[in-house]
């Protein structure tokens, strides 16, 4: 699978492990619930850990753990759920999170310009054939009116 990361199309080297599946080796991402339940076990493994959060989760729940988390996935249940835009802003703007923030799930290629402005730097699109078009939309605007994360 390919994704956009830091304005490039690259191969994805993360695997999301669902709540009931065995942990694998490598870069693995887990749900917030699993992170909360198995935090110690996950930290003991030497691999990079990612956490997937949804719109109704609060970033404050992982605020204290951010040094141990290399990837935060923002999982869109529907593209209209704008809470994840504020989550991204809070992660960067309030918690000064430096790791990867990745949009995943049901979002539109046409949203990645705004997402990038609020601090999302990686995009796992539903359809990989949209990748080139989506990448191009990052250049839709050369000017803006307001401060955000970018």
């Amino acid at each position: 699978m390919q994704i956009i990361k830091d304005r490039q199309i690259i191969d994805d080297n993360w695997t999301f492990v669902s709540n009931d599946a065995e942990l694998e080796a490598g870069n693995i991402s887990v749900s917030l619930t699993r992170w909360k339940n198995d935090k110690q076990q996950l930290l003991n493994s030497k691999d990079n850990i990612g956490v997937r959060i949804g719109p109704s989760d609060s970033v404050d729940d992982i605020g204290a753990d951010l040094n141990d988390i290399s990837l935060i996935e923002l999982d869109f249940p529907v593209f209209t759920d704008g809470r994840l835009f504020s989550h991204a802003w809070l992660l960067r703007g309030r918690y000064n999170y430096q790791g990867e923030i990745r949009a995943t799930g049901h979002f539109m290629p046409d949203q990645i310009f705004y997402l990038s402005r609020v601090g999302v730097n990686a995009f796992n699109l539903e359809n990989t054939q949209d990748l080139p078009v989506a990448l191009a939309t990052l250049n839709d605007f050369t000017v803006n009116y307001q401060k955000s994360i970018d």
Partner: peptide, 14 residues
């Protein structure tokens, strides 16, 4: 007007 125009965080409000 300027602040609201293309505000990236508040484009998908409830």
């Amino acid at each position: 007007r300027q602040w609201t125009t293309l505000h990236p965080e508040f484009a998908y409000l409830p």
